[in-house]
Design a protein around this nucleic acid. Structure first.
Lengths: 104, 104
DNA sequence: TCAATACATAAGCACAGACTTATGCGTCGT
DNA sequence: ACGACGCATAAGTCTGTGCTTATGTATTGA
């Protein structure tokens, strides 16, 4: 998978939701599906996309597969964004704005 | 446009290319089309998407419309990424990796 | 005033991608 | 050994979206 496709991978809200849940703790595919109106194959396909993008990794444990975030997969996104850091006002970096975002 | 759709907007390579060219200097729609195998309406539609996402702004000048990057539009992306900063190794932030990325 | 230019909008098409159901493969418990 | 379970893969459907051509609107220069 090309680095350039990181945006396509993250464009899907379900996949971003998966990352967010995995940020808290390692989880199986079935656990990730809890509370979501999504079929098992759909989740499996999303997880495959995330894995191929290097955003998550898996650890087999018998019948179960535990997924976890692979933070280095976000490096291309970080580096893309870095090109624009020089342009934006300091305010964007401020803690206030970050907290406001996390609040919503 | 919802903040959540910033990824969809940036998922398109043409739109990322537009941002990259605009990062250098203000430019008209026709200038942005130079070197790209893309029709005028297609470019106009991409610019509309970028504008609605708050990623660019326009300054009319007679028949011409000069576009420029609106860096604050990237704030949602920055803030999304900030949630994962805590997880990743210091190495991702390092200058070496950024340079390697810019090199390719 | 009128043709040319710069850009936007409308409408239709075609492909990508997210979903579904059906099925396959390996592992567990009994 | 065998049914239940966890997950992956296959194949088909449908919606979203990026493209096209055609046309509209405003501005410019001759």
């Amino acid at each position: 998978m090309s680095d350039a496709d990181i945006f396509k991978v993250l464009a899907d809200p379900t996949r971003r939701g998966v990352l967010e849940r995995l940020a808290g703790a390692e989880m199986t595919a079935t656990e990730l599906r809890q509370g979501l109106a999504i079929s098992q194959p759909a989740m499996s396909q999303h997880l495959a996309v995330l894995r191929q993008a290097g955003l998550i990794s898996e650890r087999r444990e018998g019948r179960f597969v535990n997924y976890r975030v692979e933070p280095e997969g976000l490096a291309p996104l970080h580096q893309w964004l870095a090109r624009y850091r020089a342009f934006w006002p300091d305010r964007i970096e401020s803690l206030k704005d970050v907290l406001k975002e996390m609040d919503q």
